[in-house]
């Protein structure tokens, strides 16, 4: 599975470097290709306009069958589906992951979810969620209550 996984990741990296210039900035963090950072800026005309953010993707050998682990690193945006520890409540990252999705499509979904926010406000249960006990957001049993989350 590993050869397929790496081949796919290299294709996706080329795709991001070629087709998302000025939108997504990719940094592959190690030689194993299994950990990426992707920097982007909040979209113009939204409450996050011009603000820099960084997503971390961690892959395992089962990718793209298995979903990547995706969190915000650095300061996460204040958003009702984004927790202060960087975890993101978005169904396609967990139960609705499909190998038809790509790193770039995940980033664009997160950007779109942020762009629809009317105000900067964290999740109502951010402090009481107990998420700090989890090493990975993929270990959390998320409850998705609307289309975006």
């Amino acid at each position: 599975m590993q050869a397929r996984c790496i081949a796919r990741l290299k294709k996706e990296a080329d795709d991001i470097n070629k087709n998302f210039v000025g939108v997504l900035e990719l940094q592959v963090l190690d030689d194993s290709w299994m950990k990426w950072h992707i920097k982007f800026t909040g979209a113009e005309g939204t409450v996050y306009a011009g603000e820099p953010y960084c997503l971390q993707f961690k892959f395992n050998n089962e990718y793209p069958i298995d979903s990547p682990e995706v969190i915000f690193v650095g300061t996460p945006p204040k958003h009702e589906h984004i927790y202060s520890n960087g975890f993101i409540c978005l169904s396609i990252l967990y139960s609705e992951w499909s190998p038809a999705l790509k790193v770039s499509s995940v980033c664009m979904s997160i950007l779109s979810m942020m762009s629809s926010a009317k105000e900067k406000k964290g999740p109502p249960n951010d402090s009481s969620s107990g998420l700090s006990h989890y090493k990975s957001p993929k270990d959390v049993s998320w409850m998705f209550e609307d289309d975006k989350c």
Binding site: G130, S141, E145
Partner: peptide, 9 residues
Amino acid sequence: MQKQIRLNE
């Protein structure tokens, strides 16, 4: 829109 998160056992 409170997100309920339960422990994954």
